[in-house]
Simulated scan of single mutants.
Amino acid sequence: MTEPDGGIRVAALDDISEGEGLAISSEITGTEDDIAILRDLDGSCWALNDTCTHAQASLADGWVEDGYVECPVHSSRFCLRDGHVDGPPATVDTVPHRVEVREGEIYLFPNQRP
């Protein structure tokens, strides 16, 4: 559901365990790619394009820790803050999106930089 400020409520915070991710369909986000909502071990939430830039793998299925998500297929790492690739075989950054947590709910702002 789109909020007046442009955010989309995509999940409750409790829907995503720390160290895990959740893919949100591009049909909901209006973006070219699905968006992965990723929850780091410190409880913070981040959003990146879901498809790894190296292979057709979902970053929401990857491992999230210490500010990075690791692709479940070939172990490329992407920075949660800015989408910068930090480990081969990927060589192309991914796209970050702004998220906010309000009263236990996660809001996504597609195509807005964090």
Results as ranks from 00 to 15, higher is better:
residue 3 E to V: 00
residue 61 D to T: 03
residue 41 L to H: 08
residue 107 Y to S: 13
residue 102 R to A: 00
residue 7 G to R: 04
residue 67 G to F: 14
residue 61 D to E: 15
residue 16 I to Q: 05
residue 57 A to F: 14
residue 60 A to Y: 14
residue 55 A to V: 11
residue 32 E to R: 10
residue 19 G to E: 08
residue 72 P to A: 04
residue 65 E to F: 05
residue 101 V to Q: 13
residue 51 T to R: 09
residue 65 E to M: 00
residue 19 G to L: 07
residue 87 G to E: 07
residue 105 E to S: 06
residue 102 R to Y: 10
residue 5 D to Q: 09
residue 36 A to M: 11
residue 95 V to I: 14
residue 21 G to S: 02
residue 25 S to L: 07
residue 91 T to E: 15
residue 19 G to V: 02
residue 44 S to T: 13
residue 83 G to E: 02
residue 86 D to E: 12
residue 33 D to G: 03
residue 22 L to H: 04
residue 76 S to L: 05
residue 93 D to G: 07
residue 53 T to Q: 14
residue 113 R to K: 02
residue 28 I to M: 11
residue 75 S to L: 13
residue 83 G to F: 07
residue 74 H to E: 13
residue 5 D to M: 04
residue 13 L to R: 04
residue 1 M to L: 08
residue 84 H to D: 13
residue 74 H to F: 10
residue 100 E to G: 09
residue 96 P to W: 00
residue 40 D to P: 07
residue 43 G to F: 11
residue 87 G to N: 10
residue 8 I to V: 02
residue 35 I to R: 00
residue 40 D to L: 09
residue 98 R to V: 01
residue 41 L to W: 01
residue 41 L to T: 15
residue 11 A to T: 07
residue 16 I to H: 01
residue 11 A to C: 14
residue 40 D to M: 08
residue 8 I to F: 12
residue 86 D to N: 12
residue 27 E to T: 13
residue 3 E to Q: 14
residue 100 E to Q: 11
residue 30 G to T: 04
residue 13 L to W: 05
residue 87 G to M: 07
residue 48 L to G: 04
residue 25 S to T: 08
residue 106 I to G: 06
residue 17 S to G: 13
residue 39 R to V: 12
residue 102 R to T: 00
residue 66 D to W: 09
residue 13 L to P: 03
residue 100 E to Y: 00
residue 71 C to T: 02
residue 66 D to F: 07
residue 82 D to M: 03
residue 50 D to L: 05
residue 34 D to P: 05
residue 53 T to I: 01
residue 13 L to F: 06
residue 13 L to I: 06
residue 2 T to E: 14
residue 51 T to Q: 11
residue 109 F to L: 05
residue 52 C to F: 13
residue 108 L to F: 10
residue 46 W to P: 07
residue 17 S to I: 00
residue 69 V to W: 14
residue 47 A to P: 12
residue 88 P to N: 00
residue 101 V to H: 03
residue 11 A to G: 05
residue 16 I to L: 10
residue 24 I to R: 00
residue 23 A to K: 12
residue 15 D to G: 02
residue 114 P to E: 01
residue 40 D to A: 01
residue 35 I to F: 06
residue 65 E to C: 02
residue 41 L to N: 08
residue 75 S to Q: 09
residue 15 D to W: 14
residue 33 D to F: 15
residue 5 D to E: 02
residue 9 R to D: 00
residue 55 A to E: 15
residue 72 P to R: 02
residue 1 M to A: 12
residue 51 T to E: 11
residue 64 V to T: 10
residue 45 C to R: 01
residue 53 T to F: 10
residue 22 L to C: 04
residue 21 G to Y: 11
residue 36 A to F: 15
residue 77 R to I: 01
residue 108 L to R: 06
residue 44 S to Q: 06
residue 19 G to S: 01
residue 70 E to V: 03
residue 19 G to H: 06
residue 47 A to Q: 02
residue 26 S to C: 12
residue 65 E to W: 00
residue 53 T to P: 13
residue 10 V to T: 08
residue 57 A to H: 03
